[in-house]
Simulated scan of single mutants.
Amino acid sequence: MKLILTNEVSGLGAPGDVVEVKGGYARNYLIPRGFAMLATKGAEKQIAQIKRAREVRDVRDLDHAKQIAAELAALTVRHAARAGDDGRLFGSLTATDVVEAVSAAGGPQLDRRRIELPGHVKTTGKHEVSVKIHEDVTGRFTIEVVPG
């Protein structure tokens, strides 16, 4: 089944890409979650619009991506979260929390969908976070979760 991706899908493609997938995967997962739409002749305008939006959001080039990765590595990121006496959080750290903490620390604006957390972060302390900045560049930094 031929689809146009509307969101980035790991291992499949980026927004605006035309992909061929199995029918069940398309009907049961991609289309209901809004990750893709059927590829029709009238959808070419939508592909162009999605690609224009992606170009604005994407990193300019490889050098710019490396610069952002170096900026992230030098950054000290702290996030205050509600926690119990034993250091366990009430809930867990989310990608949105990480994006807000990086912005508050003076770092670059990140896309929450490209944040890769090390599992479910449910304790205070330091945790390693990865960000897929460019297809060839992954930025890594440490976020310190403190009770607050």
Rank of each mutant, 00 (worst) to 15 (best):
K45W: 06
A80H: 09
V129I: 15
P15T: 04
T124K: 10
T142R: 03
E100D: 15
V98T: 01
D17Q: 04
D86L: 07
V129R: 00
R54N: 08
E20W: 07
V102L: 06
T124Y: 06
P118E: 05
V129A: 04
A95R: 10
V56Q: 14
A104T: 10
H127I: 05
V129L: 03
N7I: 03
T138Q: 04
G84H: 12
P118H: 09
K66S: 05
R33I: 01
G91F: 09
E135Q: 14
G119N: 08
L89A: 11
A105E: 00
P108T: 05
V77K: 01
A80G: 14
A14V: 15
T123W: 12
Y29C: 12
P147I: 07
G16N: 04
S10M: 11
S103Q: 13
A74W: 00
K2A: 08
L93D: 04
V9E: 02
L38S: 12
F141E: 01
G125S: 05
G125Q: 05
M1S: 12
R113T: 09
V9T: 08
P147A: 10
R27T: 12
V145M: 07
R60M: 08
V59G: 06
G125K: 02
V121I: 15
Q67H: 10
T138P: 00
E71K: 10
E135I: 06
L62K: 09
K45T: 14
G119Q: 07
S103L: 12
E55C: 04
I68C: 03
V59R: 08
A104M: 06
A65L: 09
D97L: 00
R27M: 12
F35T: 01
L93M: 11
A74D: 11
I143E: 04
G139T: 02
K45S: 13
E144H: 03
N28C: 04
K51E: 13
P15L: 05
R27N: 14
T40Y: 02
S103E: 13
T6R: 11
N28E: 04
T76S: 13
Q46R: 14
K126Y: 03
H127Q: 10
S10R: 13
M1W: 06
Y25P: 04
I31G: 03
E144P: 01
A26T: 06
A104V: 11
L75F: 06
T142G: 00
G91Q: 10
D111Q: 08
V9Y: 03
V102N: 03
A80W: 07
T96D: 15
E44K: 15
I47S: 04
A14C: 09
T76K: 15
R82S: 12
V9F: 05
G87T: 03
F35M: 15
D86N: 13
P118D: 09
G139K: 00
V21H: 09
N7R: 15
D136Y: 11
G11S: 05
L110D: 01
R33A: 04
K126G: 02
G119T: 05
G24K: 06
Q109Y: 08
I143H: 03
E55P: 01
V131R: 00
V137D: 00
R112F: 07
V21I: 11
Q67L: 08
K51H: 07
E55V: 08
R27A: 14
G23D: 14
R114S: 10
R140Q: 05
G13M: 05
T142H: 03
T123A: 14
M37S: 02
K132W: 01
E71M: 06
A70F: 08
A101K: 07
L12H: 05
G91D: 10
